[in-house]
């Protein structure tokens, strides 16, 4: 049994303009100790997938159907008491902007200690020691002194590391990181990614890494999910996704970024504009922008198909290849 099993998840926002199907039939498993990357353009449903797992959807957002099992326990419909325990002790989340998630009026130490006291049964002294230990773990220098400082006295990179310390303080089984390094510089970002990987291997937690940066997933992830318009279009090991992409959107994404070799050739952009979830096309959601689109793509959405045991994709091209025996 996988640690986390998400099955046919549908999450919508019920806005004045109509139902926005932000997540539209997402399924995946996450094994203990693994790093799963979720990539896709903005608005593709990455964050809403994460917020659905945590059940922290904003405003009119609602899980419409589907199942989310943690260690075999069903979370959809489980009620607030269960979810409090999940959020406190089993799954932690790091948000993109550390400034909005730290309270500017309390010291770093107080905020860390509160998280620890709330989620573990340590006393005050033990919580203090643990907080200092966590700060040291995330490479904040002079942790005892730093405990007494306020968020504004920290640089962006340090605040982000404090957020990670806070998320790890309750030793979660799963850490969800929603674009945790987007706002940071590459030298700092690299440090934080290494740190996460390091801690992950030490305490054996699983990570869901949400990002639009293909470099970050290549660096960190065992497995990758590519999302488009609320659905998974492709899923596989990092090597399968990068070296054997089997969905036209993934292929386009990989062609549109400059390569490491820096050939100097023109980039090949994906044409058209991002999807409007209120006006979804009937067939494949990527069809309006897809250079390879066929007639069937406009009529019918392609089901997910196994490419091999490490790889699945939902693109009619694969069906065509299979039929033609290519």
């Amino acid at each position: 049994m996988a640690l986390l099993e998400v099955k046919d998840l549908h999450t919508s926002f019920f806005t004045d303009a109509g139902e926005v199907r932000a997540v539209n039939g997402v399924s995946f498993n996450l094994e203990r100790g693994k790093v799963l990357g979720i990539v896709g353009e903005s608005g593709s449903g990455k964050s809403v997938t994460a917020y659905s797992i945590m059940q922290i959807l904003a405003g009119t957002g609602k899980i419409v159907s589907g199942s989310i099992k943690l260690d075999g326990q069903e979370l959809v419909g489980a009620g607030e008491k269960v979810m409090k325990d999940v959020r406190g002790n089993k799954i932690s989340i790091i948000f993109q902007d550390p400034m909005t998630s730290l309270n500017p009026t309390y010291t770093i130490g107080r905020q860390l200690m509160e998280a620890i006291l709330l989620h573990t049964d340590r006393n005050k002294q033990q919580a203090w020691d643990r907080a200092v230990e966590m700060l040291r773990l995330v490479n904040v220098n002079e942790p005892e002194k730093r405990m007494k400082q306020y968020p504004y006295e920290f640089s962006g990179g340090m605040r982000q590391r404090v957020m990670i310390a806070m998320a790890l303080a309750c030793e979660p089984d799963i850490l969800i990181a929603d674009e945790p390094t987007t706002a940071l510089d590459v030298t700092i970002q690299a440090g934080i990614l290494e740190l996460m990987k390091d801690i992950q291997s030490k305490i054996g937690m699983a990570i869901i890494m949400i990002t639009h940066d293909l470099g970050v997933v290549a660096q960190l992830c065992d497995e990758i999910i590519v999302m488009y318009a609320g659905s998974i279009c492709e899923q596989g090991t990092a090597d399968e996704i990068f070296y054997n992409p089997c969905h036209e959107y993934t292929k386009g994404l990989l062609r549109s970024i400059p390569t490491v070799e820096g050939s100097g050739e023109k980039l090949e952009p994906i044409s058209g504009t991002p999807i409007d979830l209120l006006n979804m096309p009937k067939g494949c959601p990527f069809a309006p922008r897809c250079d390879a689109a066929m007639k069937i793509c406009l009529r019918e959405r392609c089901e997910r198909m196994e490419i091999n045991e490490d790889h699945a994709a939902a693109c009619w091209m694969n069906v065509r290849k299979a039929v033609k025996g290519e």
């Binding site: 490479n139 220098n141 640089s155 990179g157 340090m158 590459v186 030298t187 970002q189 690299a190 440090g191 990614l193 290494e194 940066d213 293909l214 470099g215 970050v216 290549a218 660096q219 990092a238 090597d239 990068f242 070296y243 990989l254 970024i257 390569t259 490491v260």
Partner: peptide
């Protein structure tokens, strides 16, 4: 050395020069 390269094989081989100390 810190550039996250969009290529898993290169990423596995790359050795990053870690910087300590605050900016």
């Amino acid at each position: 050395s810190a550039v996250p390269v969009p290529d898993p094989k290169t990423a596995r081989e790359n050795k990053r020069i870690a910087l300590s100390g605050e900016i």
